[in-house]
Amino acid sequence: MECMTRTASPSKVTLFIPCLVDALWPEVAEAMVRILRHLGLSLDCPADQTCCGQAAFNGGYRREARRAARRFIEIFEGAQCIVCPSGSCVHMVRRHYPGLFREAHPWRRRAEAVASRTYELTEFLVDVLNVKDLGARFSGRITYHDSCHLLRGLGVKEQPRSLLRHVTGADFVEMENADSCCGFGGTFSLKYPDISAAMVNAKVDHILSSGARTVVACDAGCLINMAGAMSRRGISVNALHIAQVLAGVDFQRTCPF
């Protein structure tokens, strides 16, 4: 955080696209592009990026994760400011990349340098650019789900909420247990599907009780999980990435479901 807040606002942003967004839900990345261009930033998107290695890391496969980290660092280390629409991917880069290399190892420094320049979208908008109102409009009641790594890993809680509160026409309400895990957990949801499904269904119940017609989050993983459960249960609550809400009405209906 320190490096950016101390210096002047960046003029150029390098996009870090989560693999889930890239392959399943490109509209989220497009929405982020619109937001950042709207703010007058020039954008760069390394075309050879693939995946940050989080799934391997969370499964205990550190060697594979380290390989992914080296590749990521090589691709991104020239960037002035790296922005990503996912709390967990940023958490991986910022909190876990440096620890993948031994203290004195040259890669450690490189990992730390990249880590210090990587931001999640909402923290970048609010903390670095000091922007809370993007001029977006929305119609209806919205609730927000805190993604675990964004909230507890990066400490980002108020930034997305204040962005949502500034959306004209959006009736923002808190749901109960907004900060409890939705049960996605990457490969956890595949290895322990019954537990994962029970968790997401509890989350869906809280979304329903809030009366919101749209649930917003900052992580495609959580959203795919919640939307997948709601779709199977025939619930017509929309699951949107925050970038889609902030980018304006033509992004607010696009959802992989």
Binding site: V21, D22, A23, E30, L190, D194, A197, G228, R232, P256
Partner: peptide, 19 residues
């Protein structure tokens, strides 16, 4: 991936990646 779709749907891959 079959465990996931026992109780949830999964989005299909986009026709083309963002990148």
């Amino acid at each position: 991936f079959h465990g996931w779709t026992r109780k949830r749907d999964f989005p299909s891959l986009a026709p083309e990646t963002f990148l």
